[in-house]
Structures are given as C-alpha cells and as structure tokens.
Design a protein around this nucleic acid. Structure first.
Ligand SMILES: [Mn+2]
Ligand SMILES: [Mn+2]
Ligand SMILES: [Zn+2]
Ligand SMILES: [Zn+2]
Lengths: 145, 145
DNA sequence: TTGACAAATGCAACCTCGTTGCAATATAAT
DNA sequence: ATTATATTGCAACGAGGTTGCATTTGTCAA
C-alpha cells in the first residue's frame, strides 16, 4: 500500500523525499491512532529524521490535499491526522492524558440520517461524533491533567 | 435570571465588577450562539468596556468553575462558551465563515445509548456531536475561506 | 555523469490563542 | 473613610501554526 501511494505521488510529478517517505510510512504504521503535527515531528526525530516544523506542517497539508490523509478533530483543540482510507468513523479522547483512539459505532442508526439533512438553514455536509472519558491507564484517576 | 446569577455570586463572596456583569449579560443575551474568548472581548469593546485579554480568559475560567457557563467544542480548534443551563445539545459549524449554532436532534435514538458505555477500554463520560456544512449566507459558495 | 529546473526544505519572523507572576486597582464590608 | 482581598492590567512567555524568501535536493534529460 505504501508503495502504491508513493508511486502515485511520483507519477503526479511530486518528489519522494526522505521526509515524505518517512511520514507516509508513519501514517501507514499508525492504524488506530491519529497523529498531531508535533507528535509527527517527535516520531521522525525518534528515527533520527530531523524535519523543520514548517516542513512538517507543509507535508501534512500536502498529503491532505492529495487525499492521502485527513484531518480529524478529537475534541481537544489539537488537529490530528490519519490515513484517509480508514473511512468515516469516530473518536474517543482521554480527558486526562489526551490519548485518542478511533472507534466505530456498530448499528449506528444515526449514520444514515445525519448527513444531507438541513439543520438551522445550514447545508450539512458532514458530522463528527467524539466521545470523551478516561482511557484504561487513566481510569484510576478522577479526571483531568 | 441574570440577577439571580449575580446575586448568587455575591453571596459566595465574589465581587460584581463592571466586566463580570457585562460578561454575564452577554451570555444571557446570546442564547443560541456560543462565544469564544476573542469574540467576547470584541463584544465588550463594542459596548465601550475595555478588558485585558487576561481578564477575559480568567473570567471565562471563573464562570466555568462556578457552573454558570460551559466550554463547548464545535469542531474547529476554538473554544467557545455558552450558558450551562442550556443543557446537553449539539452544534453545527459553517466550514466557510466558522459561524456556530446550537442544534437539538429530535428523537435522537443515540442519546440514551451514547453515554455510560465502554469503548476501547475507555470509561466514557460524555460525547459531542458536531455537524458541519455551510450556513445560509455561505451556501452559494463551494466551501471554505 | 552532469546540469538544469522545479519541488521541497530550513530559517527567521510573525500570528493567534492562551497562560503566568506580580504589582496596581477596585469592591464591599466595617 | 479604612481595610482586606478579589479582581485587573501588564509584560513576558509558550504552544501550535503560517509566511516569505533564500538554499538545498530530487528528477530527468542531455
Ligand atoms: Mn480515526
Ligand atoms: Mn450550544
Ligand atoms: Zn488517559
Ligand atoms: Zn458561513
């Protein structure tokens, strides 16, 4: 999959730089956990790949424009990204440690009704359902920080 | 309502400053539209009330701590606040102009099932359902900016 | 293999939103 | 009017994110 993605980019005239290849690899190997820009930088650094923060932000924009990743909003103020191919689903955020995981609601009656409806004179094009609570490690704590 | 809220604060030993009274008034007169910190500052200024941004942020924290307002997340990265008494409901965000309105889903089958469930080993304590699309004024445009 | 050209990168400077420590001010009870 | 302390303003800081511009690098063709 990673190879096809990279090949497709090259076909379009984009270059397969070291940083780009590492980033694509990181997204493919991070299935159920969306990644923020700062986290991505940290993960690159952990592999001894130094990337300026401007470069990281530009690469996230680029991969989004190319439809390879999508921005998700888990309910805290931070943008995270994940592979677009994962399709529509939802997210859960730990209020204490900010961990985020992807969740899929089974038999979600709303899904079919949520989109394409008119709400408050808005033309609705999508929705996001975020859960929050305490992750396994944070359950012992009351909440936050 | 505003008067009771202010009186209750005074009973607890807090002071009814000019800025605090204006802010409470603004929230009570802004029923279906949550307000961000920068917006709140602007609205104060429009009434010739100059408030340092630190003061505005501190007042939002204070009113949240007092249970008078709650922070809501409409899906863009920005924190907004609204009266707590409005109770649980959802929000819709315009992808072009960032306008936010409150929405209540009628016959929402999910509501009863969404909370108090275990997801991914998380202890779920709440959820947020955000819609996005184009507001009435932005409908003519394709999207964004 | 070597150039050439455009894509990608790094850097510095800037922006918005939000926070902190501390000194100055204002509310409200006496 | 005094006083205690809640509140405010200010300056400085920090994270996350963006922009303009000069430099580097990937790609391809000679
Ligand atoms: Mn996801
Ligand atoms: Mn609302
Ligand atoms: Zn946690
Ligand atoms: Zn709009």
């Amino acid at each position: 999959m990673r190879q096809e993605t990279l090949a497709a980019l090259k076909d379009k005239g984009f270059r397969l730089t070291k940083i780009r290849k590492f980033i694509v690899e990181i997204f493919y190997s991070s299935e159920a956990v969306p990644i923020s820009a700062p986290e991505l930088r940290t993960r690159l650094l952990a592999q001894n790949v130094k990337a300026n923060k401007t470069t990281v932000y530009r690469e996230l924009d680029f991969l989004s424009d190319q439809g390879i990743i999508v921005e998700i909003n888990a309910g805290d103020g931070k943008k995270r990204y994940e592979l677009q191919r994962h399709g529509h689903h939802h997210h859960i955020l730990c209020l204490r440690c900010s961990a985020v995981e992807c969740v899929t609601i089974e038999n979600c009656a709303l899904e079919d009704q949520l989109n394409s409806v008119d709400l408050k004179n808005f033309k609705v094009t999508g929705h996001a359902l975020n859960f929050f609570g305490l992750c396994e490690g944070c359950r012992p704590y009351t909440e936050c920080r």
